[in-house]
């Protein structure tokens, strides 16, 4: 099976559960294949958790863990803890839910910044340092974090550093009435997730990830990515601009999306399609500019309009 066939198979499997969200599904899968993590910001009931479960269910032998973030959640609840075995008088490490292939961090902004930070190292380094010892996270380590955009009471906005750890932020949004009707029909006799069968293996995912690195990107387009990131640094209203990590994530995601689209090379259209989802959430807009209605997505869209694109 070619990498393109694997990608399409995985995509079709997830789309059989999450209907009418083709673009978001593809972006989230791209994020997973490129080794990044995704933050889903959406209203309740739009299918965030189902999406995570659908991805996990489509990959055989993959482990899926879910953490419901609450204000009293502790870092050890995520990373794990060493407990004294009274028979052997030794500490035994009990790994936390972070040791998994796909981790759903539900309503991540409900936990305190201290607990949120526990994910930082794992997301960036694919390892967790607990009580002085370093534990590597093997296999596909993919974090899907969700947060509710309309509730602010009792929440802790994600720290800027953690926002940068997410390769992409996107939202599912509401589906069309026709699609919603099909969703109702599909769940008439039980949830489709119950019948979901794994279509790809972890090994095939690893092969897909290797294939992404073979997708070619020209110097011109690399420079274009840098120009986009760099443009955010010269805007007065932006207090915190896109980091080199953002450029890197954009390049990797563009390569992955090109693979999904069946190309061996990256085009400017692919970069432009991904740029708002990859860069916008990393920008911190000044309060005055926010008052004037400026958003991170608006800044990126403006940059895309103004930055000369390779033709």
């Amino acid at each position: 099976m070619t990498p393109l066939e694997t990608a399409h198979l995985l995509e079709q499997s997830v789309e059989s559960i999450i209907r009418g969200q083709r673009k978001t599904v593809r972006n989230v899968l791209c994020c997973m294949i490129s080794g990044g993590h995704v933050l889903l910001e959406d209203n309740p009931g739009t299918g965030k958790t189902t999406l995570a479960k659908a991805i996990a269910g489509s990959i055989s032998n993959s482990q899926f863990n879910r953490i419901q973030f609450t204000p009293d959640l502790l870092p050890s609840d995520i990373l794990g803890v060493s407990i004294l075995n009274q028979q052997t008088s030794e500490f035994h490490f009990h790994p936390g839910p972070v040791f998994t292939d796909i981790l759903l961090a539900d309503e991540i902004n409900r936990a305190s910044p201290r607990t949120q930070s526990a994910l930082l190292e794992s997301m960036a380094e694919r390892q967790a340092t607990i009580e002085g010892s370093c534990h590597h996270l093997d296999g596909v380590f993919f974090v899907i974090a969700t947060q509710n955009p309309i509730e602010f009471r009792g929440t802790y906005p994600l720290p800027e550093a953690q926002m940068d750890r997410f390769a992409m932020q996107c939202s599912l949004g509401y589906v069309s009435p026709e699609e919603e009707s099909r969703i109702l029909a599909a769940q008439n006799n039980g949830h489709p997730l119950d019948d979901l069968k794994a279509v790809v293996s972890l090994e095939q995912i690893a092969a897909l990830q290797d294939a992404v690195s073979q997708i070619r990107i020209s110097n011109e387009l690399r420079n274009y990515i840098v120009a986009l990131s760099n443009a955010t640094r010269s805007i007065e209203e932006v207090q915190l601009s896109a980091s080199p990590r953002a450029s890197l994530a954009l390049m990797k995601l563009a390569q992955t999306l090109s693979l999904f689209e069946g190309r061996d090379f990256v085009t400017p259209e692919t970069i432009q399609e991904l740029a708002p989802d990859v860069i916008a959430h990393r920008l911190v807009i000044s309060p005055e500019a926010k008052f004037n209605g400026l958003t991170g997505r608006g800044v990126v869209e403006d940059i895309l309009k103004k930055t000369p694109v390779p033709v």
Partner: peptide, 9 residues
């Protein structure tokens, strides 16, 4: 056009 312009090969 995309191949000629953007494929490094």
């Amino acid at each position: 056009h995309s191949i000629i312009r953007f494929d490094p090969h």
